[in-house]
């Protein structure tokens, strides 16, 4: 699905990188532990997280994630948005809690990072 569809499903607000909403998203992961993101995520995935500091952006840059969605209505600080914009990484923000956000996306066909081989 496209990032725009992800946005619709999560009733999310685009915080940065609105011009990248047509990118294709196939997998997602939910984590607040950046080491887990480093260890288990797949490049091109969208990350759902409750953390909003700049290290989330740096972590995503390392493993080439496609986008980040902050859950439970957490608005990322200015610094985070700025770094994401510089990296060309789209940021979303949803009011849904982590579990529900993940559930909605999974229910609509988005797969996890350990699925689909590759």
């Amino acid at each position: 699905m496209t990032l725009e569809e992800v946005c619709d499903i999560l009733e999310a607000e685009v915080v940065a990188g609105g011009n990248l909403c047509d990118i294709e998203i196939r997998t997602a992961c939910g984590a607040d532990l950046m080491s887990d993101v480093l260890a288990f995520s797949k490049s091109g995935a969208v990350l759902l997280t409750g953390l909003t500091n700049v290290h989330v952006i740096r972590t995503c840059e390392m493993v080439e994630l496609a986008a980040i969605c902050f859950v439970r209505g957490k608005r990322p600080p200015e610094e985070t948005v700025r770094l994401a914009a510089a990296d060309g990484l789209p940021l979303l923000m949803t009011g849904l809690p982590m579990f529900e956000a993940c559930g909605r996306l999974y229910g609509r066909g988005l797969r996890g990072c350990s699925e689909n081989g590759r």
Binding site: D32, L33, M34, S35, D36, L38, A39, T49, L51, N53, H55, V56, T59
Partner: peptide, 8 residues
């Protein structure tokens, strides 16, 4: 900050 979980 999302680190220090003993996975490094």
């Amino acid at each position: 900050l999302g680190f220090g979980a003993g996975m490094g």
